[in-house]
């Protein structure tokens, strides 16, 4: 069976592939956003004792 660069399968599955691509892209954006929130929202009250501990 000859392998073509543009198999008919590619056009048939374009919707699925685009959909999956969008889902994966959205997931990357989501993890990135979550990372930003978690890093910038560290609880100052929880972090404070450590800071004083190292200072002494």
């Amino acid at each position: 069976m000859a392998i073509h660069r543009e198999h008919e399968l590619h056009s048939r599955r374009i919707g699925r592939n685009l959909g999956l691509g969008l889902v994966l892209g959205a997931f990357v954006a989501l993890v990135f956003g979550l990372t930003i929130v978690k890093v910038s929202n560290l609880d100052p009250a929880a972090a404070a004792p450590q800071v004083t501990g190292t200072a002494q």
Partner: peptide
């Protein structure tokens, strides 16, 4: 089993089917 028998099912699932 040729690979076309795997690919050519009667109806192709669309993205919406998985949704």
């Amino acid at each position: 089993m040729s690979d076309s028998s795997v690919i050519d099912r009667g109806q192709e699932a669309e993205f919406g089917d998985f949704v």
